[in-house]
């Protein structure tokens, strides 16, 4: 079942595609690790990443509602842990998580897709 997924089913959550969307949204902000952590800018980065995700998700025109969360933490050796659970329909709804590390901060994006 490698690349053999059906693109046309508007009810199907294709995690691979959504992962790529999240990855692209992060990369467009992080730009190959060229930015360093700045607390005045984090707010904007989060917004840009999340909105980048939502815009692309909307373009998929699937029968889903989406929730996107973004966590950015400055690196100084401190630990961070995140977990998610849900009460939903297992066979139609889904989530993906993408993590990107730069020398000065780490960024975790989670996308929940809930079928309607």
């Amino acid at each position: 079942m490698d690349d053999d997924y059906d693109d046309d089913d508007e009810h199907e959550f294709v995690s691979k595609k959504v992962e790529i969307i999240a990855q692209n949204a992060i990369n467009s902000v992080v730009q190959g690790e060229q930015i360093t952590y700045a607390k005045e800018k984090v707010n904007d980065w989060c917004r840009q990443i999340i909105e980048g995700c939502l815009k692309e998700l909307a373009k998929l025109e699937k029968m889903f509602k989406y929730v996107v969360t973004c966590i950015i933490q400055q690196k100084n050796g401190c630990g961070l842990q995140t977990a998610a659970t849900a009460f939903w329909k297992d066979d139609t709804d889904g989530l993906i998580g993408v993590e990107v590390e730069t020398p000065t901060f780490s960024c975790i994006v989670t996308i929940f897709a809930i079928s309607i």
Partner: peptide, 25 residues
Amino acid sequence: KIVVQTVIGEIGGQGVRIASKSLWD
């Protein structure tokens, strides 16, 4: 339908930002 996400982090003077946005009704 209920979606829950929990974040636990260590405090050590670092900056953290948690944000979310949704496409829904």
